[in-house]
C-alpha cells in the first residue's frame, strides 16, 4: 500500500517516556489514517512502541534502524 507521511517527529536523544508521550501528543492532532514518522534513539522504544500500538490500536506500519536511529511509521487508527 502507498502511504503519505503527514508529520515527522524527531525525539532522538530523549529517554523514556518522552518518545511515547510526544508521539501521543502528535497523534492527537492527526486524523485517522494519517501517518507519523518517529525518529528515536532510545533502545527501549522498540518494545514501548509495540506496547503503545497494541494498547491504543494505532498500527506500526514500518520499523527500521539505521546507525542507532530507530525509525517508526505509525498510523493513527480508527475510522476515517
Amino acid at each position: 500500500m502507498t502511504i503519505t507521511i503527514t508529520r515527522t517527529l524527531d525525539v532522538k536523544g530523549f529517554a523514556c517516556p518522552i518518545p511515547i508521550v510526544r508521539t501521543a501528543q502528535a497523534m492527537k492532532q492527526l486524523a485517522p489514517g494519517d501517518v507519523v514518522e518517529v525518529l528515536a534513539t532510545d533502545p527501549g522504544s522498540v518494545k514501548d512502541f509495540a506496547a503503545w500500538s497494541k494498547t491504543t490500536g494505532n498500527p506500526i506500519l514500518e520499523q527500521t534502524q539505521e546507525g542507532g536511529v530507530l525509525r517508526f511509521l505509525l498510523q493513527k487508527g480508527g475510522r476515517r
Binding site: P32, A50, S53, K54, T56, G57, N58, P59, I60, L61, E62, Q63, Q75, K76, G77, G78, R79
Partner: peptide
C-alpha cells in the same frame, strides 16, 4: 502493518 491491532475505538 507489522503490528496486529484492534480497531482504535
Amino acid at each position: 502493518p507489522i503490528t496486529e491491532t484492534a480497531p482504535a475505538e
